[in-house]
Amino acid sequence: MSRPILIAVLAAPLLAFAAHAFAEEKPVDPYTVSNANAGATPLTETQTFAAFHGKPGLQRIVIDLVQHSVDDPRTRDIFREIDRERLERTLVEQLCYVLNGGCDYTGRDMAAAHKDMGLTTADMGALVENLQRAMDKEGVPFAAQNRLLAKLAPMKRTVVER
């Protein structure tokens, strides 16, 4: 193997790693930042947030959910063009806010965030299943999972467009 190729082979993973570590979110059109954008009122207790293992637990769940949804043939196309960095950050914020974990949600509202994505009820169902899978992996008890799903379920009316 010639030296330049060897360097390239060695450098590629490093570069990929660096690109990932320093990836920046793509810019979005300006919007008013508000917790109301989260689309649900927070829980009033804190046991559920604890059952999710706090913010680190939510981060693991969101990373698994997004990775699985990128790989899942049912949802792959939806996630193809998505700004993954931003999605993961805002999703953790949203779930943390809704679970009364003391976070602020800085993302767009549900209508703006899902506009023109053409989401169907089946897409929503697939995402819920992927979320359930990620929560199972994190070891979140079923009853606590349902307390979160109860908060997210009504968003279907906003995000499903057809």
Partner: peptide, 15 residues
């Protein structure tokens, strides 16, 4: 059938 929406026999609309 809604135009443009593929009809699915099995899908995940319900828990």
């Amino acid at each position: 059938q809604i135009p443009g929406v593929p009809l699915e026999m099995v899908n995940g609309g319900k828990l």
